[in-house]
Amino acid sequence: MLALILMFFYIPVFLAFFWSFFLERPFGGGSEFVGLQNFRRVLSDQEFWRAMWRTLLFMVLAPGTAIGVSLVLALAADRGIRLSHPARNIIIWPKAIAGASIGLVFVFIFNPHLGLFAPLNDLFPGLWNPRIDGTDAYLMLLVAQVWNGIPFNFIILLSGLQSIPDSLAKAAAMDGAGPWRRIIDIQIPLLTPQLFLTFVLEFVGSVVEAFGLIDTMTEGGPGGATTLLVYKIYVDGFKAYDLSGAATQTALLMTAVAIMVALQFRLEKRVKYER
């Protein structure tokens, strides 16, 4: 199994960096050392930077929204009211549904002529059309990503909330803190480790998980408005057979992700509470 990890994890990672210094011809046509030329080419490509910015924006918006919504839901479910029980079950269902499957459902729901907003478009033609309007498409992608991202964050945050000792809530109540205050003063601060965990996981996740959604919903369009880096790499590598370019972008993206995760871990050490 260690061999498998070497084979299918370390060698590909290494290979991405290795190839980023070579001009690799498709179909095993040989390779040629070109130094930093690949990087120069990629970094001077406007399309790369646009995809990078879209990815970064997505990395902020999608985890932010998904974790915010999950936090509110988890706080509500933690109240132990009648609805908590079914909610705990239903809210994690999207975990079991592939992005590529729910993408088909959302693309239908948001279809400008057949979907939920079709009547609106009849009244105000052109108000909503993710097939033409890049912002609409990006929004649609975001909603689908949040839908798919809620369950895992919800599970983590809810178990975090439930591991906070009951006595703390009681002590705070004796100190005169009402339930709303306790959310701000007790629950959220003590939830910091879980919030960090969800941010780290969502950050990495949002880079790659959107692929299934993009491929089924927009195919990167319209006009590249939803071409995140992971989709661009796929198109460059598997459709345009630009292995060196794709490998170089992979290397850059992996470096960016690794740096960000490392930074987050560094930050996490500072805010952990010993209980």
Partner: peptide, 25 residues
């Protein structure tokens, strides 16, 4: 440490080169 690294970089991120390896192990 070897294992921690695998958590950080998901498969979809290194799909290009993993494909090359699986295409010829």
């Amino acid at each position: 440490a070897v294992m921690i690294a695998t958590v950080m970089l998901p498969l979809d991120l290194r799909v290009i080169t993993t494909y090359q390896i699986v295409a010829n192990v």
